[in-house]
Design a protein around this nucleic acid. Sequence first.
DNA 1: CCATCTTCCTTCGAAATCGAAGATATGGCG
DNA 2: CGCCATATCTTCGATTTCGAAGGAAGATGG
Lengths: 372, 372
Amino acid sequence: MRGAQGDLLRLVAAGHAESRAELARLSGLAASSVSLRVEELIGSGLLVEEGAGTSRGGRRPRRLRLSPSAGLLAVADLGAHHARLGLLDLSGTPLVVEERPCEIADGPEATIDWMAAAFEDLLAAHGPPGVPLRGVGTGIPGPVDPATGRVVAPSRMPGWNNFPVAERLGAHFDLPVLVENDANLMAAGEARSWPKCETLMVLKAGSGIGCGVMVNGALHRGRGAAGDISHVRVRSDSSVTCSCGHDDCLEAYASGAALMSVLNEQGIEVRRPADVVALVEDGVPEATALVRNAGRLIGEVLTVLVNFINPDAIVVGGSLSPAEPLIASIRAAVYERCLPLATRDLEISTTRSGPDAALLGAGSLLLDAVLA
Amino acid sequence: MRGAQGDLLRLVAAGHAESRAELARLSGLAASSVSLRVEELIGSGLLVEEGAGTSRGGRRPRRLRLSPSAGLLAVADLGAHHARLGLLDLSGTPLVVEERPCEIADGPEATIDWMAAAFEDLLAAHGPPGVPLRGVGTGIPGPVDPATGRVVAPSRMPGWNNFPVAERLGAHFDLPVLVENDANLMAAGEARSWPKCETLMVLKAGSGIGCGVMVNGALHRGRGAAGDISHVRVRSDSSVTCSCGHDDCLEAYASGAALMSVLNEQGIEVRRPADVVALVEDGVPEATALVRNAGRLIGEVLTVLVNFINPDAIVVGGSLSPAEPLIASIRAAVYERCLPLATRDLEISTTRSGPDAALLGAGSLLLDAVLA
DNA sequence: CCATCTTCCTTCGAAATCGAAGATATGGCG
DNA sequence: CGCCATATCTTCGATTTCGAAGGAAGATGG
């Protein structure tokens, strides 16, 4: 997929362009060059022409789409006790998504080999015959060094520290490989659902607290830990020591794990963050109060970041996100304390991409590698 | 300066490239095309060949520089009671820099007209004859809407709210005009001195507290308030109401103005932030303690941002920055509390560009407009 | 001092890209 | 319905860009 043609494909795949004219506008190439290239791409079976779009006052554009047989991407999102796995076509549309149990504590070798086998599984069961796999990618619940594809100092992944995940996964497939933090993938996935938002913060509120940032339309990786807010010190009366060794980390008060441990101590049995959401929906006051407090603490941290980054939107996802009081108190804290200029057009809402956000994000980022 | 040629000029002007070979590497153009273009640019008097560079194991490169007669930029940095003004050549090198008294409280019309006159002044006195002015720009001690060039909701600039600064300045000069927040300009200026740092936080500690951010080599503007940290709530025993109406803003404790007011209450007379620095250098314990506390508070705020953005460096500038205890306690707070991954290669130090950082930044940003 | 390697830069035919003009298709309006 | 304005897409000659080959200048190492 040599240079300029890859650019055109990417624009179509990412949903930015649907016609030759749009491609010309967005790519900066002359309309005639675009036509030539598109003809070639159609000739080689990567693009297909599909009906006509709506007129904007003149001749209707001929819609372009990636051919469903252009290729497949196999993507995964690893959690502590289960993994979501999916196959996407090159435009990022899911063919299948499954959730399977999987213990990350089994260590990297076992988990990655299991993932490779699961991908083969999905391909055999759902892959249209003759359509080649073009890339594989996975999200990891911990920091990933963007340069090397290694996991770096994860807090809840025993045995994974410094493990070369990308390398191991690449040994199974001779293809472009993507390994990225799960919250970062969520951010990349949500970005497709927020086309007007150049800078976006995506909060993953589950048993941990993660956050991914898109700045100017691109994922901001920093040194691999960018977006981390879980070990920010929060204002609090009591004093709790976090697993990281510091006192009063956000994670120690507002993560799903923290909420669950408090509830369990109070004799209210919960096993997963979703159970907390259920309690809130049932109107159990202890749970509601806890969730509301968590939202306030998270919101106070976001306050600093909103003033600093001025995002266009804050998206809340993760297994705790369906709990209404969570987002309500995040909103309250942010709107109350941030600069008017920063909140004037700021939208704070729950995920538009749903539980597959990370898989979609993996697809989106993989495209860049596959169509390079 | 049509497209591709502008790109080449910009690479030379910004100091990224010094030879045809480097231009070819950085611009992505073929070496032969670069040679052609460079020949034209030399022909039209914008570039000059100047001696030979150092060999990297083969033939020595022929050094390229922007012609001193290619053009001038007039830039300013407005403060509350004075302004720095300068002329730069197109490679951003200052020809003159002057500081003149100037009351921003006189309102936008008077100030901007004064600035225009001062620019004419400088040109008459120091502009080489026949070299055209190619752009003007200024820094403003308040938020600027990047889209319109208007000042938005500034806290200490009576009469400036919503004033179209860029428009008024443009009325004096029919040229590209840049209006930008002063801390943002400082960030753009420092960035040239930190060539290996893709993402950079630049703190301006003066009578106020400002901050500018470069993300992936580009200034991050957000909605015009990006980088604002002055109204972050800090942990504190007492309770102070800030001018913004909220309690316990960083600015109310750690800004130069706040330090000065405390010192004056204690009967130690200070009029400018530099006086505070002098007291610290004289070993006056009240001043040192205050500055150290300010550094700690600032550092605690930076903690959150460092974890989130993972900058490559934090640069401290502004009139308070020469006070050693300030940066020492910022360092202490950040290194103590941030994630190891975020601080591993993080450099925290004082300005490399000195007091002209904002002027240099204005030049750097103006170039993009002038050579577009 | 000479062969060899590296890097810088230019030359020149091949290939890609452009842009102006025109062909095609559609909506709007009298 | 016919005409105009608008937008999409193609054709084709002019221009730009590329890339392979080679010349120029210096480093390296016998």
